[in-house]
Design a protein around this nucleic acid. Structure first.
Lengths: 249, 249
DNA sequence: ACTGTTTTTGCAGGTTTATGCATGTTTTTC
DNA sequence: GAAAAACATGCATAAACCTGCAAAAACAGT
């Protein structure tokens, strides 16, 4: 096989799977691994791929391109945040949890909204404070350093004393069998209390976490009123949830 | 799986869930936990995540986002903060207000201090959260957007339920005639409650504010136990306060 | 077609990297 | 305060790597 051909083949493989192993290629094409290595080296110099120990990766896959901007799935979260913010009306009492998605929602609130937001998440409070017209209530209690929200009995009993119209939770895992689940006991207790204290529960998550599970259950899927992801409500991934009676946005 | 690929996978997981356990990863990817540990170590060195015992955390929340040097009279406040921090012993319950001086105190706390800090100031909570060993209690209530502390009846009744060893207040004005005074009614109510709930009151202020006055009184000079400024305790400016029975540091 | 030149390839060797394992230590947790 | 989990460290090994070299292949020009 000619060098050019080989190069084309390698690039084809890399675009197909986002990675290649030198060993695989040398076996496939029946040339020595030295040759493959030289090929990869050349292609890397030409910027067609990224050479790593043991093989090569697609340029699209690697850091600079995808990682820098979108490791936090910023774009998806923005979209979720906007859908979520549109549910809030003047005069409402809104309970919210913590997490980056909720922070994005805080940023996406319309300028003249006149609602009351209650949360135990310190970073979220920070974000709410920048809004000109909303009222912000902090839930007191012991502060969990990991999750940066208030937890414990104090916080839970405060939440129990509230009747909110809406509850927004950024969730870590959801499936139909076990509903919403998470991995921090203290945080789960808080979320449970929030769910019980609200008329409607709105769950926010990027689609990637749909159909996944974590050790501790927050609530049944039946408790969820609205589910928001960055995808279209018609996406087949979400169909089972619609059929289970959840409104999907 | 290639090393770089693994790194990308780990980062993806971490940004998805905000944390990962080494054990989970080694099971997922099917490599030894040693390898995972080495991966996490490398990624941590590169600043892509924060390594902790048993796994790693996302950097997303842990960004020190308070600008350091653009604080008015930074050096003076540093000095005050250090004097103040030296008063705190293991096991103490400490009530603190808000303000840049208190934030500096939070930064000046010794690394192994084992005390409990109670505050309603959101920026101060942020700072406390960075400390490895202290316990942090947030006072709940309505959040005042100006002063960034919780105010109102809810907060006050919470404070009343506390018996603290020390209370640190950053103060805006003090003279012998009217004691400590301030200009925000809500904030003053909170400070009053704090003073009443503590054994000892420690007031922090830059010397510039000594012998000045604001419209609303917080407490009498007789309520103050300790006064801390950036000046030496022997400074003539402070003599009247010493003579009035206040311990000056 | 022949010869000189260039390119490509495989190989020998010595080096580096990645990984797992064994050891002993620290940290966490109950 | 003792057991379990997580950690660091050093070592061994296999795989991947680089370098230089020589054989083979491809090329080009009179």
């Amino acid at each position: 096989m000619l060098k050019r051909e080989r190069h084309a083949y390698i690039l084809h493989q890399i675009n197909l799977r986002n990675k290649v192993l030198s060993a695989d290629l040398s076996l496939d094409i029946n040339v020595s691994d030295d040759t493959i290595r030289r090929d990869l080296h050349e292609l890397a110099e030409a910027g067609k791929l990224i050479k790593v120990h043991g093989g090569a990766l697609s340029t699209a896959f690697h850091s600079g391109h995808l990682a820098k901007r979108d490791v936090y799935s910023y774009t998806q979260k923005r979209m979720i945040a906007q859908k979520a913010a549109s549910l809030i009306r003047d005069g409402m009492f809104v309970l919210t949890g913590g997490g980056t998605t909720i922070i994005e929602m805080a940023r996406a609130l319309p300028q003249h909204l006149h609602a009351t937001f209650i949360t135990g998440s310190i970073p979220v409070i920070f974000e709410y404070m920048n809004h000109p017209t909303i009222e912000v209530i902090a839930i007191g209690g012991k502060v969990s350093k990991n999750s940066k929200i208030t937890v414990g009995l104090e916080a839970i009993s405060r939440i129990r004393g509230i009747r909110a119209d809406l509850c927004f939770l950024g969730i870590n895992a959801i499936n139909l069998e076990n509903g919403v689940s998470d991995n921090d006991w203290d945080v789960v207790q808080i979320k449970k209390a929030m769910v019980e204290s609200s008329q409607k529960l709105v769950c926010l998550t990027i689609a990637e976490k749909i159909n996944s599970q974590q050790p501790i259950q927050v609530c049944e899927h039946a408790d969820i009123d609205i589910l928001i992801t960055e995808r279209s409500p018609d996406d087949p991934l979400l169909k089972p949830y619609k059929e289970a009676g959840i409104q999907v946005l």
